[in-house]
Amino acid sequence: MKRRKFLTLSGIAAAVVALPAIGLVSTSVKDATAATIFNDFPYLKLDKEGVDKFVDALLIARPPTLAFKTKVRGAKLLGMKASKANLKFNVSQQYLLSTDFFRNKMDESKPVKFIGFYDPYQMPCSNPFTSLYYPPDKS
């Protein structure tokens, strides 16, 4: 192999390895987490500001581990859904519980708005599947 060809192939190989790695590092955990939530729900009308607020609250409530950071960045890079990214806890489920989606009876036509990070100690009685939200005469 000629030296020039060798250098060219080496460069391509290095780029193949390095570019995703750069992608992994350059994406913020916040952006990556938000992106995977959007990937999960392309058919819902999510509000970007609300998703960002949710992710801010999430990263405070559950400080991300190195494994989480790596996985969520990788998931963004690959266009994966949060629910399929093996993130240990279900980010998308937590997000939906933190919105008005269930209170709106899972109506996909309505914009999904962030209410507050789902935590029964911060917001008691917010389990959206209870009789508070499905009174007996309507369920």
Partner: peptide, 12 residues
């Protein structure tokens, strides 16, 4: 009880 489902320490 309002179904918070974290009964070990009940929020209410």
């Amino acid at each position: 009880c309002c179904g918070s489902a974290v009964c070990s320490v009940c929020p209410v």
